[in-house]
């Protein structure tokens, strides 16, 4: 039976303080987001006013249309979508296959190679930025492109295929599968690759969903690599195009905020529908090696 305990004065003060803290935190996170929506619906006259405008006098939904015709936004979205979808699909397949190998097949140098992958997790992409740039230049010359693989989808995709974290996560996931699964498959005449393809892969829903959502957000949100690997307007990704608004002489804040919100739509869709997987992926990253 539950005993209703009398709350002390200290407890009440604590509860009040903690509610205030949560309220302030929520407000400071929410307010800039609300202002983004608000400014995206304002006229430039309202933005030039010296008084703060929180609720626009008229909701200028046309701003969104104007913003999207301010540059080739259909093209930017297409670029980002191609790069993101291909990167996610290839990397999920390749990384999970390697995760399976490390989890299930005993082979020579297994531990050494796995250690190398863990080491790879420590190398920030910022450190390899210049060498990868120079590599893409050479690779381009090999395939007969004088200017390297810049301004190509290939150039935007290749550096993001191999993900140490993905291999690591899939290995952890597959290790918990019962060994009998492999034995049964062997008896049925499946080789290792077939076992992976026909048995492990179809059971990989949760881990691939988490990895996929993380890879999707990561690739869609990537800014630095498209910044250095593309030039001109045609191959710009959404993130790079978005920052272009800032470099104009006069910044149209309403259009900029509209574009900012639109640029995140794919992420928000994935995020809302796969919130569970997104969170699971983040938490899996915090489980240590």
């Amino acid at each position: 039976m539950m005993r209703i305990k009398k709350r002390s004065k200290g407890d009440i003060a604590f509860t009040v303080l903690s509610r205030i803290f949560i309220l302030l935190l929520a407000l400071s996170v929410a307010f800039p987001l609300l202002m983004t929506v608000s400014v995206s619906l304002q006229t430039m006259n309202e933005i030039y006013k010296s008084d703060p405008v929180v609720i626009p006098s008229e909701f200028m939904f046309e701003n969104y249309k104007t913003a999207m015709s301010h540059g080739a936004w259909a093209r930017y979205f297409y670029n980002s979508a191609i790069v993101t979808v291909i990167t996610v699909i290839i990397s999920l397949f390749i990384n999970s296959m390697s995760g399976y190998v490390f989890a299930r097949i005993p082979f020579k140098f297994r531990n050494a190679l796995f250690a190398l992958i863990l080491l790879g997790m420590m190398i920030p992409t910022q450190v390899t930025l210049i060498p990868v740039f120079s590599l893409l230049r050479k690779l381009g010359i090999i395939v007969g492109r004088e200017n390297g693989l810049f301004n190509t989808y290939t150039g935007l995709i290749l550096p993001f295929i191999a993900g140490s974290f993905g291999v690591f996560l899939c290995r952890q996931f597959y290790v918990s599968f019962p060994k009998e699964l492999d034995d049964a498959a062997m008896i049925d005449g499946c080789g290792r690759f077939q076992t992976f393809l026909k048995i492990y892969l179809p059971l990989s829903g949760p881990v691939l969903a988490s990895l996929g959502v993380l890879k999707f957000t990561g690739t869609w949100n990537e800014y630095t690599w498209p910044l250095v690997a593309t030039s001109g307007d045609r191959m710009k990704t959404v993130q790079v195009a978005l920052t272009g608004f800032r470099d104009e002489g006069e910044i149209y804040w309403n259009l900029l905020m509209a574009a900012t919100l639109v640029s995140g739509i794919p992420i928000y869709i994935v995020f809302f529908f796969a919130q569970k997987h997104f969170v699971a992926g983040l938490l899996a990253g915090s489980v240590k090696a």
């Binding site: 929520a26 996170v29 202002m35 949100n221 978005l242 574009a259 995020f271």
Partner: peptide
């Protein structure tokens, strides 16, 4: 709400705060 800014790209977040 609290994870929302984390999912948003740094480019978009930078734009919001420039404003």
């Amino acid at each position: 709400l609290l994870i929302f800014p984390y999912a948003t790209s740094m480019a978009a977040v930078s734009m919001i705060w420039l404003m």
